[in-house]
Amino acid sequence: MSELDIQPELVSELLVSFLREEVRSAGATRALLGLSGGIDSAVIAALCARAFGPENVLCVLLPYRLSNPNSAVDSQSVATHLGLALQRIDISAMADGYLEREGVSDARRRGNVLARCRMTVLYDLSVEWRGLVIGTSNKSEILLGYSTQWGDGAHALNPLGDLYKHQVYQLARALDLPREVLQKPPSADLFEGQTDEGELGFTYAQADRLLYCMVDRRFSEDELVAEGFEREFVRQVSARVVANHFKRVPPVIAKLSRRSVGHDFRYLRDWKR
């Protein structure tokens, strides 16, 4: 047993309650999400099915011409398993209208464009479906900044944002998802052969434990080293957390008046809902 272990049934109960109430307070009754074939979106699909009933959840598969075909297969198996509708919208023409025409070859830029194309489609469909876009980012990704700003990082609600990847796996096992989804290595599938851990240079298991001690438990660098973490690894991860903070905050507004949005105009999203 790890100190990061959660009570999956309790978490699932809380998140279903969160989804129902926050979707309702936004004036909606339905939800939609991008289904990637990975574990995070599979967990979100399962939670949404519980919260709103399968008929009120729309899953969208958004493949690009170079996407791993297994992603589509796994997405379909998640949707079928949960009894959810799966709409397929190929973003190749949309993305290549810019990427190919302008000759963008840098993998990171291409990946970001694909993520933002997907966001554009999801937000457009949310109007037709009259539902809220549910995000799938977890706490590990958010802290490490392993996401595209205004891409996969854009959504109305985020149920998994306070759960480390380890905890998402635990939740996934309790939610009874297809085995292949639980077992495959995490990948953003933005270019061929990409895996999260390959790109990050460390494993989620390593990062989760470190982030838990650093963020949740507030250990200092020396305390983390005493806890058995390599000092270099601690510094590398801390640097990522700091460098990516811009992705976690709304755009910075220059304060000029006596009362400015973003500084001293303080209301919750649930204001008068």
């Binding site: 100190e3 990061l4 272990d5 959660i6 009570q7 309790l10 978490v11 809380l14």
Partner: peptide, 12 residues
């Protein structure tokens, strides 16, 4: 606030 979902619990 409802906080602390760590195992073994039980509960919050």
């Amino acid at each position: 606030p409802a906080r602390g979902v760590e195992a073994p619990g039980p509960g919050l």
